[in-house]
Design a protein around this nucleic acid. Structure first.
Ligand SMILES: [Mn+2]
Ligand SMILES: [Mn+2]
Ligand SMILES: [Zn+2]
Ligand SMILES: [Zn+2]
Lengths: 140, 140
DNA sequence: TATATTGTTGCAACTAAGATGCAAAAGTAA
DNA sequence: TTACTTTTGCATCTTAGTTGCAACAATATA
């Protein structure tokens, strides 16, 4: 499917109006395999206000279009959600993230089972986030 | 051992001069079981310049006194290192962190083995960070 | 296809986080 | 006590993120 059409489809499905900034931002996510920071996007789309970008990322996250990819750095990064995610629930509890030491890109890794970590004495575990680091496919 | 003496000992061991700000900051780490953010410390020690705090945290980290505790939030938190850590190497690769959903405190968890995560196809894994969340001992 | 309605954008203005240069002050060793 | 070196605190700057608001754009519906 053409990338434009796919963007429109996603925005419509999540009840977001189709606007120029949203289309270009979403296009960035669809055309990059790695998670993107606010800054990454700002550098790629020059004709967009940074406040709009903040707000777009926030509403994308709220509507289940993107999710924060925890990668151990201080700069938040965002990545596309699975199509099953919605305003009400994100459904990728069990995927992990990989940060490349060389290119510094962060990737969502689907299809690797998250092991159950034995709960430390006295703690009640509800969730597990795993961040791997090392060399990505390109940098190996 | 008196807490003052312990602070002095740690600073001397790591080749850091004993100064008033360093003593009070280190005292905070020794007297709290949870990881502390810049802000946590600033609120507790009122007579210290925030720039000095930034620089102290940085040199503590460089000298192996504290380490960054990855906890999935955007605010960096720091926790005491094991005594085996040094300027040249941190030796707590294999401990994990727990963030409490209720009190928002982050704890280092020693003594829970970090499982080997199967490496995703094409990636070369060098390290694993695990962050658990749920309820801590106090909040359970 | 024009209009009403509502959501979105971009700007200004603000707050918070963090870094750097530098002179004065403090710690250490002789 | 002095000489040497590190550390501190201040001023200043940069970057990150938030909020209020008027103008504007997207959609619905007549
Ligand atoms: Mn992800
Ligand atoms: Mn730790
Ligand atoms: Zn890479
Ligand atoms: Zn708690």
């Amino acid at each position: 499917m053409a990338i434009q059409l796919e963007c429109e489809k996603i925005l419509k499905e999540r009840g977001l109006r189709i606007t120029k900034p949203r289309m270009s931002i979403l296009e960035q996510f669809l055309s990059h395999p790695n998670a993107l920071s606010h800054n990454d996007i700002e550098e790629k789309i020059l004709d967009i206000d940074r406040i709009t970008l903040y707000r777009t990322l926030k509403s994308f996250e709220e509507k289940g279009v993107i999710h924060k990819a925890i990668d151990g750095t201080d700069k938040p990064k965002y990545a596309l959600c699975e199509s099953s995610c919605s305003e009400h629930a994100h459904h990728h509890d069990s995927h992990l993230h990989f940060r490349c030491d060389d290119c510094n890109h962060t990737f969502c890794i689907e299809g690797v089972a998250i092991p159950a970590i034995p709960a430390p004495e006295g703690y009640h575990v509800k969730g597990t986030d795993i961040v791997l680091n090392g060399l990505c496919k390109n940098c190996s």
